[in-house]
Each structure stands twice: as C-alpha cells, then as structure tokens.
C-alpha cells in the first residue's frame, strides 16, 4: 500500500489505514521514521482518524531527538518530489500479497498526480504575464497642397493623445511639385487603440490634412 501526500485529507486517511495494524511507522519500536512522518503530518490529527491520533499521541510522549534510527521517510510514503517511482515500487513489492487493492490505489494515485500537474500548470500559466498585442503602424498623412505648413500639421498629429498610443519618428517624403507628405510612425496597443478611430481623429484637422493612409501595419 502507499500513503499519499500527508498534507491532504486523503493522505492522512491512507496513514490511518497504514497504522491500523501497526504501532510504529517502521518496525516495532519508535524510530526517527516516526519523527519524520510526524513532522510531515504537521498538525494534530482529528478523531476521524483514530489510528493516526493514537500513534501521534504515542510518539509525542517521547523525546523526539533521542529516538534511534536514521531520519528518513519509508518508501511507502510518497512525497511530492517522487510520487511515481515510490508507488510503482510499492505496488511491485506487494504484488504477491496484495491481490485486491493495488490497482485501485494506483488509479487513485495516478489521478492525484494528474490533478497536481494540472494545478501546477494552471499556476505557471497564471504567473506568466499576459502578452500585450501591439502593432507598429506607419501612417501617410497628406496635406492639401504646397502651402500647408508641414510643421504645424506634424504638431497637430502629435497632439493626439490616447492611452496605448506612442508616436514615433516622422519624416517628410516629397510627392512631387514641391508637395510633401508626412510619414509618421506610431506604436499602438491593439486592445486599447482603434486604428480607424486614430485616422478619423487625424482627418479632423480638416484645414491641414487631406487624407490619411496606412503605409504599413506590422504586428509586434
């Protein structure tokens, strides 16, 4: 038989069954194995696990440090670090004796391990910071004509402020006939900033801006 994690109710119940026909964890007298399990148990068992309670009270009556033996938990006690190997070993050992119980125990153990892994995975997932989707956009802002003050237009565009919007570098690109267009880069957080809304806002500077196009749109 195997005893599960002593921090769980199931583990304590296993221990209760284990101690039903044993006075001590290992052998016939108190040893450090008892101390190890006592410490692993941590709390005082409830009366719903009478065997554990009896054993607990008994071991408590000793001077724990003076007990003989090496302080290690016997192999039937699966700890969080090596649950699979110890159960496999225990069931192998018991094969010739324990004809009835082992399958069920293994299943329960396997289910428990799976649960633990799922929990660990969920925990890991929740700790990982959510990726903020961002896009880098280059906008072509076209002016009405060669008389438009490009500097003023750029300032107007840059005056637009939104949560999640960062303006980047800009340059003037000649279109022809002395007319320039403003190419300006910006980085937006996809969830917070709508590109359409941004373009609309730029186009609201009707005196300066004729049209706005998206020159490039890249996901970062």
């Amino acid at each position: 038989m195997a005893v599960g994690d002593l921090k769980t109710d199931k583990g304590v119940e296993d221990l209760n069954t284990y101690l039903a026909d044993r006075s001590y964890i290992d052998g016939w007298q108190p040893t450090q194995a008892d101390v190890a399990v006592l410490e692993a148990l941590g709390k005082v068992p409830t009366s719903s696990n009478p065997h554990v309670l009896r054993w607990h009270n008994h071991i408590k009556s000793y001077d724990l440090k003076s007990l003989p033996g090496e302080k290690k938990t016997p192999s039937i006690f699966s700890t969080a670090t090596a649950p699979t190997s110890s159960t496999a070993k225990a069931s192998e050992d018991d094969d010739d004796l324990d004809l009835f119980g082992s399958d069920e125990e293994e299943d329960a153990e396997a289910a428990k391990i799976r649960e633990e892994r799922l929990k660990a995975y969920a925990e890991k997932k929740s700790k990982k910071p959510a990726v903020i989707a961002k896009s880098s956009i280059v906008l072509d802002v076209k002016s009405w004509g060669d008389e438009t003050d490009m500097k003023e237009m750029e300032n107007a565009v840059r005056s637009i402020q939104m949560d999640g919007l960062v303006w980047g570098a800009s340059k003037l690109v000649p279109v022809g006939y002395g007319i320039n267009k403003l190419q300006i880069m910006c980085v937006i957080e996809d969830e917070k900033v709508s590109v359409d809304l941004l373009i609309e806002q730029i186009q609201e500077f009707e005196d300066l801006v004729q049209s706005v196009d998206i020159a490039s749109f890249n996901k970062i």
Binding site: M1, A20, D21
Partner: peptide, 26 residues
C-alpha cells in the same frame, strides 16, 4: 496490532510461536 508489536521482542517471546498478523491489511 498491540499483540503483534509486543511479540516482536525475542527476549520476551522466548519459545512461544510468533503469531502471524501479516495478511491483515488484505
């Protein structure tokens, strides 16, 4: 459980048989 624990001491058991409690957990 108590009996099994007591009988393990050889000095105490002397020439009495060891009573088997091995298969109890089944």
């Amino acid at each position: 459980r108590w009996f099994d624990n007591i009988q393990q001491e050889e000095k105490l058991r002397q020439d009495l048989d060891l009573i088997s409690f091995n298969l109890l957990h089944i």
